[in-house]
Nucleic acid binder design. Structure first.
Lengths: 179, 179
DNA sequence: AACCTATATGCACATAATTGCATGATATTT
DNA sequence: AAATATCATGCAATTATGTGCATATAGGTT
């Protein structure tokens, strides 16, 4: 699983609590690898057991104590080995495309609405990507780590704007059926 | 899970054996929803238990008997209900993007190779889609079911050609680092 | 003769992901 | 005053997915 590696990668940047990581997986790295907070906490426990992170509790008053996780040398080794290994092809699983594939068994107006919803989701993501790009990358001088993130972000922007275009076409094509 | 529904959808077209379905999930519907043959057989057993498919063994000589699965009325009901329900957003999980995100912890030439491999995979998929489009859809008069499949295929083609373009850019951007 | 591919089904085990719940304080909004 | 959001952790149960193996025959390849 690459969830372990995704977490370790986040921790190379700075030590973090599970809560911080969960938020990171709701944005930034979460754009490329989704994970829920339960997944993150469970994986952190495993990483701790394997000695890939060093976890220490910080006393807090008024709210639960935080547990700060720091990547160990062994953890950095794991990241390095992972980075050399070939990438798995992301497995496709898209209900919307299955429904188009199954158009004969589907109510067209309902499907059209679902396409509209999906279109909005992609537009929202695209807007979010643009905000991040403007705020953190445009007109700034970037180090290597930032350049990498910018490349990933740029790919995200291309994909999302392509999806917006493609979904528009699909909606048009759907409208032409029985018209 | 929508694997059940994807299988049922395939069976609305014609009754099939698990083997036939597994092959279908290696191509056509598999472009939109990936599943291995083990997943298919397991899910078929469940569908049979729930009475959503009707399974009967066909005697064969020289090779194992086939079990032909036919969708039942209950199965068609399930497909209909599913088609009305909102689609889940496909969850992103792409190691390659994580590696770009983590560029500081990655060896650039190695990553470049991985990007090249991915580029080839997308080119191959794009070529496959074009072959299917030419063979089954171009210049043909299409019924509603075929039009739906064509819309899905067209989206696939857009996505793949976008990915080819985007990966090219990413490789260029990566080449400009430390150059 | 040994090996590979296609046909055809499926079990067992392991790993991963989702869903729902539980706790409990403080701060902000309606 | 009540409801919601933020902070912060995690268990338990279920569902989904992946890996490896098992079986058995026909036909073609090296």
């Amino acid at each position: 699983m690459a969830l372990a590696e995704a977490i370790l990668v986040c921790l190379t940047d700075r030590p973090m609590s599970g809560y911080d990581l969960a938020k990171t997986f709701d944005a930034s790295i979460g754009f490329f690898w989704r994970a829920s907070h339960q997944q993150v906490y469970r994986e952190l426990a495993r990483l701790r057991d394997k000695g890939l992170v060093d976890s220490r509790e910080i006393e807090q008053s008024g709210r639960p104590n935080r547990i700060i996780h720091t990547i160990t040398d062994a953890g950095e080794g794991v990241v390095h080995i992972w980075s050399q290994k070939p990438c798995r092809v992301p497995s496709v699983k898209d209900e919307l495309l299955v429904k188009l594939y199954a158009l004969d068994n589907v109510d067209i107006p309902v499907l059209r609405e679902q396409l509209d919803i999906r279109l909005d989701q992609h537009r929202a993501k695209l807007a979010a990507y643009f905000r991040i790009k403007e705020k953190f990358y445009d007109g700034k001088s970037l180090n290597r780590a930032q350049k990498g993130k910018l490349i990933a972000l740029t790919m995200g922007i291309s994909n999302e704007s392509e999806m917006v275009k493609t979904l528009g076409n699909a909606i048009t094509m759907l409208g032409e059926i029985d018209a």
